[in-house]
Amino acid sequence: MDIGSIVGLVIAWALVLWSLVIGVGIGPYIDFPSFLIVIGGSVGIVMAANPINKLIVGLKSASKAFIYIPQSEQNLISQLVDFAVKARRDGILSLESEEENMKDEFLKKGIRLAVDGTEPEVIRTVLEMDFENMVKRHDNNIAVVGYFIDIAPAMGMIGTLIGLVAMLLNMSDPAAIGPAMAVALLTTFYGSLIANMIATPIATKMKIRSIEEQHLREIMLAGIMAIQSGDNPRIVEQKLNAYLPPSQRKSQFD
């Protein structure tokens, strides 16, 4: 679980709500018509802009902003170096028995191709295609959440215009001015909250997770290709350690 995402959102929302409470209270900021315009309008537009299957997958992937088990780069490199040692000692076919220890499907696919004696160019092509399609899927999922960053404020502006029109049409009735003004102001407020305090942090964290996963795939690809070519395990380790900052580089052979 990503504690940073949860704690950050809780702090942000708690401070905003607290500022409302110590001001005029939360009650004046609750307006059901404004809520319907912004929330209902935003959800409807996002649904209209995306195929339903893409929308469902994109919204499900948003959970990665909160529920995510990071994979250690150092542990991955250590595993790949161990594979290189075993392949060097017992032959690359010996890695077939390691398949049950590989939780990542990308790594499993690459090692399986190498064990099967697939040509290096074919292995690289297959894995790079897998990598590129993963990036496209991530970008599509991030875009679904990103729609709310643009749509929610726009729906807030629409609500503001609706409220202003209603207010101007009822200037002679003082009792009608207050509710109309509430719609005019609160829709902008709601749209800003959704865009900046929900959609933006989630989409940003999804981008970070995507970059982290891409980095891991790059390490896997480099390791698989080095193992397939029969590189010395020390060389494999040096190649893979290049993906880490100098302060995090370790050697199993020291």
Rank of each mutant, 00 (worst) to 15 (best):
M1F: 09
D2A: 00
G4A: 13
S5A: 13
V7Y: 05
V10T: 11
W13Y: 11
L15I: 15
L15T: 14
V16L: 15
L17M: 13
W18Q: 08
S19A: 11
I22H: 06
I22D: 10
G23Q: 14
G25Q: 07
I26R: 04
F32S: 01
I37G: 11
V38I: 05
V38S: 02
I39L: 14
V43E: 06
G44D: 00
G44C: 10
I45M: 14
I45V: 15
I45G: 01
V46G: 07
A49V: 02
I52T: 13
N53S: 15
K54P: 00
G58R: 10
G58F: 06
L59E: 01
L59S: 06
S61F: 09
A62W: 10
A62F: 11
A65C: 11
A65G: 15
F66C: 05
I67H: 02
Y68W: 14
P70D: 00
P70F: 00
P70Y: 00
S72G: 12
N75M: 06
Q79V: 01
D82T: 12
F83E: 06
A84N: 09
R89H: 07
D90Q: 12
D90A: 13
L93K: 10
S94G: 10
S94A: 15
E96T: 05
E96Y: 07
E98S: 14
E99M: 14
N101D: 08
K103E: 14
E105W: 00
F106V: 01
I111N: 08
L113M: 15
L113R: 03
A114R: 09
V115H: 07
G117C: 07
L127K: 04
D130L: 02
D130S: 14
D130P: 00
N133Y: 10
M134E: 08
V135R: 12
K136H: 10
V145S: 07
Y147P: 01
Y147K: 11
I149G: 02
I149W: 00
A152Q: 03
P153A: 06
A154I: 04
A154N: 12
I162N: 04
G163Q: 08
M167L: 15
N170Y: 07
D173T: 15
D173W: 02
P174Y: 12
A175Y: 01
G178V: 15
P179I: 12
A180P: 08
A180T: 07
A180I: 12
M181D: 07
M181V: 06
M181S: 05
A184N: 08
T188R: 05
F189Q: 04
F189G: 09
G191H: 06
S192L: 13
I194C: 05
A195R: 12
I198F: 15
I198V: 15
A199S: 13
T200K: 11
M206H: 06
E212Q: 14
E213W: 08
E213R: 02
M220F: 01
A222K: 11
M225C: 12
M225T: 13
I227A: 03
G230E: 08
N232H: 13
I235T: 12
V236T: 13
K239P: 01
Y243T: 03
L244E: 10
L244I: 09
S247L: 04
F253C: 04
